[in-house]
Design a protein around this nucleic acid. Sequence first.
DNA 1: CCCCACCGTCGAACCGGTTCGACGCACGGC
DNA 2: GCCGTGCGTCGAACCGGTTCGACGGTGGGG
Lengths: 338, 338
Amino acid sequence: MATIGDVARVAGVSRSTASYALSGKRSISDEVRQRVMAAVGELGYTPNAGARALATSQTMVIGLLAQFLPDEFAPAMLQYILGISDSARELGYDVLLVTEEDGTRALKRITDSRMVDGVVLLNVAEDDERLPILRTASQPGALVGLPGDCTGVDVFDLDFEEAGRVMVETLHRLGHRELVLVSQPEHVVERGGAYVWRLQNAATEQAALRGMVLHTAFGAAQQPEVGRQLHALLDAHPRATGLLLNNEAAAAALPSVLTERGLRAPQDLSVIGRYSDAFARTFSLPYSSIESAPDRLGRMAVRQLVDRIERKARAGPHVVRFISPELVDRGSTAAPRS
Amino acid sequence: MATIGDVARVAGVSRSTASYALSGKRSISDEVRQRVMAAVGELGYTPNAGARALATSQTMVIGLLAQFLPDEFAPAMLQYILGISDSARELGYDVLLVTEEDGTRALKRITDSRMVDGVVLLNVAEDDERLPILRTASQPGALVGLPGDCTGVDVFDLDFEEAGRVMVETLHRLGHRELVLVSQPEHVVERGGAYVWRLQNAATEQAALRGMVLHTAFGAAQQPEVGRQLHALLDAHPRATGLLLNNEAAAAALPSVLTERGLRAPQDLSVIGRYSDAFARTFSLPYSSIESAPDRLGRMAVRQLVDRIERKARAGPHVVRFISPELVDRGSTAAPRS
DNA sequence: CCCCACCGTCGAACCGGTTCGACGCACGGC
DNA sequence: GCCGTGCGTCGAACCGGTTCGACGGTGGGG
């Protein structure tokens, strides 16, 4: 493999001159630059990433910590990963994907060994164990998901409170008076997924404000169970005319459940979910939904992270940004049956 | 950040002695080793990955090239990624995930710059453009998916021919005489996804051998279309008693289609799919299926790759390994209605 | 005509590890 | 008592880049 020394020799210049010709950090005569470029082409030279990292203390790699927890609804995760990977590349960075179960150890490893210039954490919990490690690391970090304590990191998340309000308010305006909300499984909440509460509490408040009845329940993340639960909920609340789903698995299960019950949306039941448009398209889910925008969140996190890496504004003010929920209308809401 | 020089100073030894104490590559007195370890603990020393890579020409990172093509059925990809990431970590490697659209350029970049010790290619096409690049690279590569030319790489794939035969033979034994096979979308085939042909041709031959009728069709990868196609196919072949699905989206769509037609599996129609058990569980697909085993394939690829990296047996004989299809019985096959 | 500034290039040091050869010392065998 | 062996340690070189300071040459201004 050719080194910059080889390039220099072939071009008949010193190593430093070759380096400057390539980086453009000092002025170089046109003639020498051309000779260097020719040598690069001839030898097929590519700089050695390790050597460059050592010299510059920049790896041009960002770490992506994704935890795949059992009973998690996996398909959604892929969209975050894709958004992050693609936008990182656009900004000149590669992505080190870490799915190690012990996220704290993994984070410590990749930051301490300086394999990465910064880190994106997915699936951040209310009291995430990885945060203390991240704060002591010398690289910046961006989170997708809102923890209890945001100091020292940039945070991006959907505005789940507003999402809850929008869901309720949309159906209220159409004349609904009794709703059911199906959330993520309870163990997701226990693990610190505060967003479940954020949406549910806001929805409950908004319903109270409007004098509506809102029944809440945790749904399973797997299919036979969540389908049965939906049946049970519809049985238990026969007067409910609207169904809110903060649970992808429940949304995926709903078509069969409705068919089995001989119900149609929106004629017999208005439905609003909370998932990404890509998810809706893949499974042809015909329900209006709050767009969870994983790709957008991922892009925002990466953009901010790279900005912080490159502007060295490590100490600059940190940002907590919520994207406001957008309701994608797929025609599954209407005035309730009178 | 502490360097090995700091460790050496605190321990009162030379840098090389500290290095040997940590690597164990030369004998070191217990007393010195303890002093070095104490210094490591005190300073929180972690070796710098770039420096180590430069010195040893080993990065302990493997590249994972995954192409996310439009109209691909994405959820399946995640399982490959997970299997690969997890098994890599178990073997001491991290994973650089590359989803760049231009796979050849990405591959060239990460191998030439020596960011990785080896590479796993997903979604390998019959005539994959990335293969020539991989062959000229100095790192070994493992593929998931069978290309036309396997020289210089290790290849792992499901035995799609056998899968096709097993599907047909299973229904033949039960007494079926007319089947429909729904494959992946045609553009997947055009892009070089030869596995579609492998399964379909073998199924066709086996059917001919048994004197059965086999209708074949390409199904869409998205939902409203594939559901309509399934309806059309069942309309077009009313005497068919068995349905074979080499198309995840079709499998996901089938429950609603059957419900809409008032059919049940296996009473009215026997069904065999080809997807992973994890996929079946997530979407509660009640159909027997050929296990596509993405995690197992990923693990095999990584194991072989790491073996080749570490045994430096770059020139050793390359392997093309097919895993034999296992039919997971979920009770969706039975003798046809007489 | 001289001096200064600037442009283009070079040599050397440095980043933080690993590894080779050498060296001092203790110990055992004759 | 001497020599050879082997163990534990050290110094120095090396991996392949980047970057700083210096230096020679040229051109312009006074």
